[in-house]
Amino acid sequence: MKSIKYITYSTMQLFWLVALRVLIGWYFLYEGMVKLTNPNWSSVGYLLDSEGFLKGFYLSLASNPFILKTVDFLNIWGLIAIGLGLILGTFSRIAIIAGIILMGLYYFSHPPFIGLKYSLPMEGSYLFVNKILVELAALVVLFVFPTSKKIGLDRFIFSRKKK
């Protein structure tokens, strides 16, 4: 892959890529904070509601209290860290990859396939494509068109490393 540093954007391209990054970051940060501040939140309900070919995997996560606690912890702090990474542009590459993985996990836990039914209310689901898949694709766009070394703290982090 071509080194990221040499991609040049027009002002408009850069502005909207950064805007997309920050907006998705906001989304992640909010989701994480809501879970962090709700003492009753647990991923157990979501995991147990899983369908599709990976159902067994998600159910096994929910069945062990220790694993469940770990899943909860990773979810909350993962969402917050990814959110901060995207907004501030710190270690954005890692944040974007982590975000893509997380979105993939969410997607396959509740795939919007024909015939699968969920007891939890679904938001924005339109046959195979849902909100999560769109967000996942947007993150891939951000991965291919990185901006954090132009606008973001990665500008300092990585320029210093170079020296």
């Binding site: 950064v18 920050v22 970051g25 906001w26 940060l29 909010y30 904070m33 501040t37 901060l84 907004i87 501030l88 542009g89 132009k150 606008i151 973001g152 703290l153 500008r155 300092f156």
Partner: peptide
């Protein structure tokens, strides 16, 4: 300019914190 470019998105975080505080 370097510094401004590096820190450009920090106000967004400020807005988030403010919004979060208001909502809470």
């Amino acid at each position: 300019r370097e510094v401004i470019k590096g820190l450009a998105t920090i106000p967004v975080l400020g807005a988030f914190i403010y919004g979060w505080y208001k909502k809470q």
